[in-house]
């Protein structure tokens, strides 16, 4: 049988109103409509979702783990981005 492999899709679920969609796994489906239905059947049987996104796996661009240092370390030294860097006298109250 020379059927091409069924496309792979990544599934993102919003579990509750107010939360962001979170990646929960993948599945195989021939097109977006079937992917959405499959995601519902596989990933929301226990009330885990109020919204589903399905994305073809090959549409995802990911950062290269070997570039972690270059991508993410420079942020670590910029402590002036954090509130604790700044001193505010207690008498002023909460800020």
């Amino acid at each position: 049988m020379a059927t091409p492999n069924t496309p792979l899709w990544e599934v993102f679920i919003r579990s509750r109103n107010g939360l962001a969609h979170k990646h929960c796994g993948s599945l195989h489906a021939s097109d977006a409509t079937m992917a959405l239905q499959a995601a519902r059947d596989i990933y929301t049987r226990r009330g885990e979702g109020v919204s589903i996104w399905v994305v073809p796996s090959n549409a995802i661009t990911a950062s290269d783990p070997s570039e972690k240092g270059m991508m993410f370390e420079p942020a670590e030294s910029k402590i002036y981005r954090h509130p604790t860097f700044y001193e505010v006298p207690e008498e002023v109250g909460h800020m």
Binding site: E10, T61, D64
Partner: peptide
């Protein structure tokens, strides 16, 4: 992230 995306 996943093989089809980056690690082909």
């Amino acid at each position: 992230m996943y093989t089809q995306a980056l690690n082909t």
